[in-house]
Design a protein around this nucleic acid. Structure first.
Length: 135
DNA sequence: GCCAACGTTGGC
DNA sequence: GCCAACGTTGGC
């Protein structure tokens, strides 16, 4: 199972919105590289939900509820359905991530504008550990 | 509010 | 097909 990180501005759509909805279609990914990543995702994969803007933190985990499919509004773009898994015990902030060299090569740090990116098992586990406050 | 990084667009 | 100019995004 692969892991991903999806970014969203919480004033636009937050993890709380997702929890309230139970399921949503993740669309509006226009960036070519982000699209490439999104199309590699599979139903059942897990993804972090990252809040940009004021929060700048990983706040929750979601599961892909479908394989990538063409956006009805734009056939060239892929969209995917996601459902919430759980909210992190503590958000893992960008500042905390940047402070740890283990994340230095991660796209989240290196390419601030990328909205969909892969997450290695190592990083996935480390973020989870940090969210539990044990690192 | 400003700046830097990156993507996209348009002219050649 | 290449490159410069411009716009947008996201962090500080």
């Amino acid at each position: 199972m692969a892991h991903w990180l999806f970014k969203q501005e919480p004033s636009c759509y937050s993890f709380e919105n997702l929890e309230a909805d139970g399921l949503t279609t993740w669309d509006g990914v226009a960036n070519a590289l982000a699209q490439k990543h999104l199309k590699n995702a599979k139903k059942g994969d897990h993804a972090f939900f990252y809040h940009t803007g004021k929060d700048k933190a990983v706040v929750g985990i979601m599961e892909l509820a479908s394989d990538p499919a063409p956006d009805p509004a734009d056939e060239k773009l892929a969209v995917v359905n996601v459902k919430p898994v759980k909210k992190l015990k503590n958000p893992v902030t960008l500042a905390a991530i940047k402070a740890d060299d283990a994340f230095a090569s991660w796209e989240l740090v290196r390419m601030s504008r990328l909205s969909v990116m892969p997450v290695s098992d190592t990083i996935w586990k480390k973020i989870l550990a940090m969210s539990e406050g044990s690192v």
